[in-house]
Structure formats: structure tokens, C-alpha cells
């Protein structure tokens, strides 16, 4: 089942690459277009994630909820019951912002596998690739794919750390822009969000440094599209980019 999924990704990538005319740098462009395609397909999920995150943040700033938290601060069981009640009353799905995130991981792993699959480096890889190409895609003449994109070999990690820095920077930007303002000083979620805005870029930067640069191109494109999506929906919190002293509460 998983192989079929990876195979689908590989064929879509090859199809786009074929449409682009398989010239130099075109596999990188194919990855970018493929990422845009994935973003369009998962747009409703991402929108749901934003909606869920916003609802959770609104709840953190809700005066009634803050009172409840204060009241049952020492009774965690009761607090949990009250939390579920409030979720029901306000129509909040506690997993509403998690599920779309879960969808991203299989996509990321499948894309990684399809990139390495398409950019074959050993004879056995090439033979396996021949089996996964759909018969109606007559792409035998495209093989081997041109793995060069700008200064990178998309099948290898980028050697100058430039892409890793860009991945980390765009991940940081996206994290900061999507952090809603919190008026609740005891908001643990906001504190974790701040901490994630630091750890996630480092983690993604490390992934970009370690794995084929084709995957890093996906990260950068996906991050930029994420920022664009937030901005287009008017949910980007640009004030988060300013120093704390300049932010309006």
C-alpha cells in the first residue's frame, strides 16, 4: 500500500518533469510545482488546522475559561471535565489542529522516498524505478533524471548549508506568523508555541542539512506557501516579527 503511495508521487513528479521538458534544473521546478499541488490538495486541511488553532487560542483568551482554570487549578480531573464541556459548548474539536499536521508526515516521507526513488543512484534503484513508472507515462527517454537544480544536486544534501539556513528561517517565519497573540499570562500553550518557534526551525534545518536537497526544496516551498496561505486568509500575525517592546497587546 505504502509503495503504491510512493509510486503515485514518483509518477506525478515524473509527469510534471516531462511536461517541463526535462531540461537542466527542471526536476527542482517539478518539486516546487508538486509542492504547490500538494498545498492546493491539502488546502482545506490546512484551513481547518488554522481554524482549530485559532479556536484554541481564543479559548485561552476567554475570560470565562480563565476563571474555570483558576477555580479548578488544584483539581485536574474536574478541570479536564470542564475543559471537555467548554469544548462541546463552543464546538471546538481538540484534534482539529492536529489531524492536518498528521497528514503532512506521510506526505513528507513519501516525497522524500519518491525523490530518492526518481534520482536513482544504483543499478537496482534504476530497475525498481522502471517497475514503478505507469505504462501510459512514456518517460523512458527521460531517464536518468537531471538532478541538478541551481547549485545543488537534488539527490544529495546541499553542501554549503545555504538551503538549511533558508529552511530554518522560513520555518521560523511561518511559526512566528501563525502564533496568535495571547492575553493570558498563564497560557502554557502560548509558552510552548514560543518554544516551538525556536525548536522547529532547528529541527527542520537539521533535516535539510542531512537529507537530499530535493526534500529541502519541498520544505522551503511548503513554508513559503504556508505563509502565503495565512496571509491570504488574513491570519498572519505580522506583529510577532517585531521586538516585544514594539508589539501591541
Amino acid at each position: 500500500m505504502w509503495d503504491y503511495f510512493v509510486s503515485l508521487f514518483t509518477n506525478v513528479l515524473l509527469w510534471i518533469y516531462n511536461l517541463l521538458g526535462n531540461g537542466p534544473h527542471m526536476f527542482g521546478v517539478a518539486i516546487i510545482l508538486f509542492t504547490i499541488l500538494i498545498r492546493i490538495v491539502t488546502w482545506p486541511l490546512n484551513a481547518q488546522q488554522m481554524k482549530g488553532a485559532k479556536a484554541m487560542q481564543d479559548l485561552q483568551n476567554d475570560v470565562e475559561w480563565q476563571k474555570v482554570q483558576k477555580k479548578y487549578a488544584k483539581d485536574r480531573e474536574k478541570l479536564a471535565q470542564e475543559q471537555m464541556r467548554v469544548y462541546r459548548e463552543k464546538g471546538i474539536n481538540p484534534f482539529g489542529s492536529c489531524l492536518p499536521m498528521l497528514v503532512q508526515f506521510p506526505i513528507m516521507i513519501a516525497l522524500y522516498q519518491s525523490i530518492t526513488h526518481a534520482l536513482t543512484s544504483t543499478p537496482l534503484d534504476l530497475l525498481k524505478l522502471s517497475r514503478s513508472i505507469y505504462p501510459f507515462l512514456n518517460v523512458s527517454d527521460l531517464i536518468p533524471l537531471n538532478s541538478n537544480f541551481l547549485w545543488m544536486n537534488l539527490g544529495q544534501p546541499e553542501p554549503y548549508y545555504i538551503l538549511a539556513i533558508v529552511v530554518a528561517a522560513t520555518t521560523y517565519l511561518q511559526s512566528k506568523l501563525t502564533l496568535p497573540p495571547s492575553t493570558n499570562p498563564n497560557d502554557q500553550s502560548a509558552a510552548m508555541g514560543q518554544s516551538m518557534a525556536i525548536t522547529m526551525p532547528l529541527m527542520m534545518g537539521w533535516l535539510a542539512l542531512t537529507f537530499p536537497s530535493g526534500l529541502a526544496v519541498y520544505f522551503v516551498t511548503s513554508n513559503i506557501l504556508g505563509i502565503v496561505q495565512y496571509a491570504a486568509q488574513g491570519k498572519a500575525n505580522w506583529s510577532n516579527l517585531l521586538p516585544k517592546s514594539m508589539q501591541k497587546n
Binding site: L102, F105, I109, Y112, Q113, T116, M203, T210, L215
Partner: peptide
């Protein structure tokens, strides 16, 4: 999940 993803990717490569 990020750690799991990293481990899975590492296993792949």
C-alpha cells in the same frame, strides 16, 4: 512526530 519523521527518514536513507 517530528522526531518520528526524522527517524523514519533516517531509516530510509
Amino acid at each position: 512526530l517530528v522526531l518520528l519523521g526524522a527517524v523514519l527518514l533516517s531509516a530510509c536513507g
